[in-house]
Design a protein around this nucleic acid. Structure first.
Lengths: 205, 205
DNA sequence: TGACAATTAGTACGACCGTTCGTATTTTAT
DNA sequence: ATAAAATACGAACGGTCGTACTAATTGTCA
């Protein structure tokens, strides 16, 4: 005996909602549209969540879980320090570019600009996710310092900060401008960031 | 004799629409809401544009014009090369952070993620604006090479690419995470970018 | 000032929104 | 198999959306 019937359809709803939110944005989700795609009634779908906001929260949670499973979990399996960091970057880039389940790109990324001025539980959830992610990256970088891959006085949060910018920029150039060189340029930027962190010469970083 | 009455109200509409789009996003614009704020009828406002899409196009055009006036025009007055580039960065950062007319941040930035999967004239306009802007930056960097401020083999488009990422990241950390150190971190990243471009040691950039 | 054009208002439309409610159906557990 | 509980449906609600019309008002210029 696996899931109850209700849990199964709820999962199917969220799966479809994620795909839609990827293209239309988290605010572009509508109950009716979703119900049509899943061939069920509006009210039947609605009953699983009780409100549109709750649906959005569920979508965000699932998006975060999938992101961590695809990007962080496999990276954590790599040896700590630079190898793990490189894996993290590689997986993250891959997540941004090629994700069959998210044809419109990363939901959390588009939500970041869509929700930045819209207070509420959905925004709150997103903010705490992003802060946690930034902290996770920073810790991975600290390990690289401890391993001796990076210089001891490196500002790890600054590194994490800039790394985030590279991936934001990747989405921008890839998805909006359809720049074929975007991934390559981002890899270049990442390598520059790494070599800046490795160099012993005093340099603000 | 200045503008006709119609042109004046049209300008007022766009001004208000820009403010709204800054907070709600370019897709969050609605004729009714806008009409209420300006104390006019929906139909009266609508008549100025003929369609919602045309209103959005007008908003995007105005947003771009204002951006260039605030960021590029004053930078162009600085001596070419590094000084001009620094002014460009300073003005750009200022535009992203403190803009009384755009309480929700840069409209073109939020539109970039909102429209990346929504084909149409509004998206087309945004794309060409962003490409032009990237080209403008690249040219300013080329001048810095010619002036001898940057090394001769610098990849100017790569520099422009990364610069864009810094400003995207600024918006992200400032507007979503409310990170007080965001501006400082971006300045640090910018200076690192500059020093990387200036150093004669061969380094992929 | 009078006539004409430009601008605004008013009303209505069909479509879709999130949500509620009563009812039917199906799953689950005894 | 049967009773209870979970799940899904259909219809309807009040709203808002963009847009199309006509009518009234206002600005413009000979």
């Amino acid at each position: 005996m696996g899931m109850s019937k209700g849990a199964e359809t709820k999962e199917a709803i969220i799966r479809e909602a994620l795909k839609t939110a990827s293209v239309e944005g988290i605010d572009g989700l509508t109950i009716g549209n979703l119900a049509t795609k899943l061939k069920m009634s509006k009210s039947g779908l609605f009953a699983h969540f009780g409100s549109k906001e709750a649906l959005q929260e569920a979508v965000m949670d699932t998006a975060a879980r999938r992101f961590l499973d695809a990007v962080w979990v496999p990276a954590k399996a790599e040896p700590r320090g630079l190898p793990r960091l490189r894996a993290l970057y590689r997986n993250w880039q891959e997540w941004m570019l090629h994700n069959p389940d998210l044809p419109g790109g990363c939901v959390l990324t588009s939500a970041a600009t869509a929700l930045d001025d819209k207070p509420g539980p959905v925004r709150d959830r997103l903010v705490s996710m992003q802060k946690e992610w930034q902290a996770t990256i920073a810790k991975a970088i600290e390990l690289a310092v401890r391993e001796g891959h990076f210089r001891a006085d490196l500002d790890c949060e600054q590194f994490a900060f800039e790394l985030n910018g590279i991936l934001l920029n990747l989405t921008f150039h890839q998805r909006l401008l359809r720049d074929r060189q975007a991934a390559e340029r981002c890899s270049t930027a990442f390598e520059a960031l790494v070599s800046r962190a490795a160099s012993r010469t005093a340099q603000a970083a």
